[in-house]
Structures are given as C-alpha cells and as structure tokens.
C-alpha cells in the first residue's frame, strides 16, 4: 500500500574531507532488518544519523514513510523513528524509570505529565530488557551493559515504526546480545517494525538481518541481501583482514583466519 518506512534517493553523506556514500538508493520496508557493516571510521554513525534525520544529507534526500525529513517536524519524526546513539552520558542524576520515560516525550502534549499508562509502557520495556526491579536505581550507578539496555528500553518506550540503532550490542554480554537481537527480530516480525543497525559481528548480521549494507570508507558501498553480501571474500576485503566462513545448519559464522 504505502511508501516504504525509510527511503533514500541519490543520498550522499560526507564527513570532513571524505565521502561516506554516494548515490545511495535504499528502501527499508516494514518488517525488514538491515545490517550496516564497515571498518572503524568508515562513517557508519554519520550515515545512521543521516538516516535518522538528525543530520542533513550532503546531497539527495531521506524519506521517512514517504515524507522527506526536511519537511517533517522533529516531533512528527520522533513518533515514527527512534535513534540509538553510541554513547550515553548522564551529567545529571536520574533514575532508570525517569530515563526510560523520556521516550514518551513525542507522545505527550506540552503541558502533560507522564500518566500511569506511560509508566506501564516504560516498565514493560524495562522488563523486556531484563531490567525489571531496577526502576529506582540511579543511571549513573549502572554498568555499561545495563546503561546500554536502559537506552534500548527508552527506544521501546518511544514505540516507533523504525529503529535506527548505532551499535545496539555495545557493552552487552553474549547472552544479552542475542536477547536484544531476538527482541528487535520479534518487533520486526510481530509489529512490522523496520530496523537499521550497525553491527560488528557479520555472523550475527547474517543470522538476524535480511539485508546488508557494506561501507568501504572511501565512498564505495554495497547493498544487497545478507546472504549474498556476507561472504568470506567480501568481508575479508571490507575489513582488510582475511576471514574464514564456517557454515553451521544454515547459519554462517566468520572467524579471523
């Protein structure tokens, strides 16, 4: 029926002195999951911020559900897409519950306070990330992995159609890495959410994403199905280190050779 959740047309993204992608035409439909891979400094975060509408493109345009970010008020955009940044810094004290409730902001009127309903949504999000019982903890006392899961819970609380995630697995142990990826897979499958995320493990990208975008860091990029793009040969070239693929019952893992 409608426009794709996220669409780029002839998108060019620059970082000072370098081009990250040129002429990128990308469509992300409901329920689709896209992995973005590349070396450190390839411009993944910059591209992601552009896809989230937080940074104007150098050329071309980015459309959220058919409307260009340039024509979309920030508040409208916030109801439809959530963005996870790489660092969570808390200069001021705040409880876990308050931090997660921030995700309700775009759904509340100017004078409204968070209702019991909002609190319920926030508690559910915390429970989904295994943080039930930590509601009253100060965020500054949390471990890195716990803080990361609080940030993810805030995104769930925002209830968007599109998740744009910069390294969602940062600081997470193996158990929670899988739990978080399962959570977004379920959101895509059951609620039709679209997910675009930066991952550093091509094996997990292959297991959890339909499509992949490889950023070579010099303006070249490759977009395609995860199965076709995530091969030992391409990834060895991408990372500049020879990788070996291990196939295991339909899953594909990559280890440094």
């Amino acid at each position: 029926m409608s426009a794709p959740l996220l669409e780029t047309r002839r998108l060019r993204v620059d970082v000072p002195g370098r081009t990250v992608v040129t002429a990128l035409d990308l469509e992300l439909k409901r329920g689709e999951r896209l992995a973005i891979l590349g070396r450190n400094g390839a411009g993944k975060s910059t591209l992601l911020a552009t896809l989230a509408g937080l940074r104007p493109p150098a050329d071309g345009e980015v459309l959220l559900a058919g409307t260009s970010y340039a024509a979309l008020p920030a508040r409208e955009a916030a109801r439809q897409r959530a963005w996870l940044g790489q660092v969570q810094i808390d200069p001021f004290a705040s409880t876990v519950l308050e931090t997660v409730l921030a995700g309700r902001h775009p759904h509340l009127g100017r004078w409204a306070w968070e209702s019991a309903d909002d609190a319920r949504i926030a508690r559910e999000a915390l429970a989904a990330l295994g943080l039930a019982g930590l509601e009253q903890r100060q965020v500054q006392t949390l471990s890195g992995g716990e803080r990361q899961r609080v940030a993810l819970a805030a995104l769930l609380t925002q209830r968007p159609a599109l998740f744009v995630l910069d390294e969602p697995l940062a600081h997470l142990d193996l158990n929670h890495q899988i739990a978080v990826l399962d959570l977004f897979a379920a959101a895509a499958r059951d609620c039709g959410a679209g997910v675009a995320m930066v991952l550093h493990d091509p094996g997990l990208a292959h297991r959890y994403c339909d499509r992949a975008l490889l950023l070579h860091g010099d303006g070249r990029s490759e977009l395609g199905s995860a199965d076709a793009l995530l091969t030992a040969a391409r990834l060895s070239q991408l990372y500049g280190h020879s990788l070996k693929a291990l196939d295991d019952e339909g899953r594909r893992w990559f280890v440094p050779a």
Partner: peptide
Amino acid sequence: ARGQMQAQALGV
C-alpha cells in the same frame, strides 16, 4: 540535559 542528539531524536 540528556544530550542534544537524543533530544533531537525525541522531537525537540
């Protein structure tokens, strides 16, 4: 107070 980019992403 939580960060400019976060605030922007939340519609500020």
